[in-house]
Amino acid sequence: MAKRIDVSGLTAYYSTFKAIEDISMTVEPRSVTAFIGPSGCGKSTFLRTLNRMHEVTPGGRVEGKVMLDDENLYGSGVDPVTVRREVGMVFQRPNPFPTMSIFDNVAAGLRLNGSYKKSELNDVVEKSLRGANLWDEVKDRLNRPGSGLSGGQQQRLCIARAIAVEPKVLLMDEPCSALDPISTLAIEDLIGELKEHFTIVIVTHNMQQAARVSDRTAFFNLAAVGQPGKLIEIDDTERIFSNPSVQATEDYISGRFG
């Protein structure tokens, strides 16, 4: 179910500003890859190029190739809408749909895409909420508004919403940065379970988190403000945190800059 991502020579612009330049990497299926790097180096930008959300930003433009297994997401004739059904996303701030109940939030993707059987909907919602470790907390109030949950619960609701459409890849942009340590732990555990089924890419500013949850870690950096961000290195998480091959990575991880 999970798919491999193979990026080569990817450059992304905001109008005329080049935000990231010439990034190439491979992300293995059923693995967790963490992106780390100083603020503004283009982690979010790169993440959003992986499901064609970058072009939603006015002026957003991408050059290069992103292969999902053997299909180029930026090939001609590829519909971004279908790409996003395969590559789901969880955002930094929890953003449940305020007009919808908990149930409807999880069902939103299926309902709005019109690709479901009525009889299956209940099962899918339950399965997704269980998958997001939220089922026990909300099973008695599925019809209450989703915005009435706590921040951590809302974020898990958003994860449930994202996995309900059964994507192949799950992108997470600092999913825990608005959460307390307990909710963070819950989501980290969840990531560990989710990687059985999905390919996961997570952006984080928390080194311990990257070390805890990820199999591989990619370090991004930029030469100076106004310069495009670049991929410095990507390697097994253990190596990045014990013995990275680039000095800048070690400096960043040990807190000497950034």
């Binding site: 789901g88 749909f97 305020p98 709005l112 958003c158």
Partner: peptide, 27 residues
């Protein structure tokens, strides 16, 4: 209407016109 809601919907693979009619306008 916060942009995040539009993005959340688009990221689920919902087409833009449906995002507008089912998410943005109801909000």
């Amino acid at each position: 209407v916060p942009n995040e809601l539009r993005e959340a919907s688009l990221a689920l693979g919902v087409p833009k016109w449906k995002t507008i009619t089912k998410i943005v306008i109801p909000t």
